[in-house]
Computed example of a mutant assay.
Amino acid sequence: MPRLFLLAAVLAATTAIAAPDNPPVPLPKPPQADRTPAAGPPVPAEKPKEKQAPAAPEPEKEKETAAPAEPPPPPPPPVETEDRAAFEACTAELKSLGAAFRTLPRIDDGNGCGIDKPVAMTRLSAEVAIEPEVTARCETLLQLAHMTRDLIEPAARLGLPDMGRLKAVHQASGYVCRKRNGAETGKISEHARGNAVDISALEFEKGPVPMKIAASEAPDLAAAFQRTLNAAACLYFTTVLSPGSDDAHRDHMHLDVMKRTGGYRYCR
Rank of each mutant, 00 (worst) to 15 (best):
V25Q: 15
G207V: 04
A53Q: 11
D247Y: 01
A45P: 10
Q143F: 05
L160M: 06
H254I: 09
P210H: 05
D34E: 15
G244D: 05
E139G: 04
F5T: 15
G182H: 02
K63A: 14
A126Y: 00
P24N: 13
P154D: 06
G98K: 00
V10N: 03
L141H: 00
L142K: 07
T261A: 13
T148E: 08
A168L: 00
P154K: 01
R149H: 04
T122P: 05
P161I: 07
Q143K: 08
G40F: 03
A89V: 04
T261G: 08
E58K: 13
G112Q: 08
A39K: 12
L255M: 06
R102H: 02
A172Y: 03
L27H: 12
N111R: 10
P78G: 09
A214Y: 04
T65I: 12
V134E: 00
M211H: 06
V119S: 06
M1E: 12
S200F: 01
P26N: 15
T15I: 15
T15V: 15
A38V: 09
D198S: 12
D116R: 06
P74Q: 05
A172M: 09
M163S: 09
G194T: 09
K179W: 03
A66W: 06
P73W: 00
A67S: 03
P37K: 08
N181D: 14
E62V: 07
G174H: 07
L6Q: 15
L124C: 03
D21T: 14
R102Q: 06
T238M: 11
D247Q: 15
G159Q: 10
K29M: 15
P208S: 11
D256S: 09
D109H: 04
V240G: 14
V176K: 11
D256F: 10
L104R: 03
A8Q: 13
R137A: 04
F237A: 12
C177K: 08
A155D: 05
P161K: 07
D150Y: 04
D220W: 12
V197N: 01
L144C: 08
A38S: 07
E217K: 10
V25Y: 04
T185N: 10
A172P: 01
A232C: 01
D251Y: 11
M253P: 03
A248N: 12
A248P: 01
P71I: 00
G40A: 11
P154H: 07
T14W: 11
P30G: 11
A18P: 02
M147D: 02
P59K: 11
R180E: 10
A53H: 03
L124K: 01
P132A: 03
C177D: 13
R157K: 14
P72R: 02
K179H: 15
I152W: 00
L7D: 02
A129D: 06
R102T: 10
P48W: 02
M1F: 12
R106V: 05
T185V: 04
K95I: 01
A231I: 06
E133P: 01
T91Y: 03
P59N: 02
V176N: 10
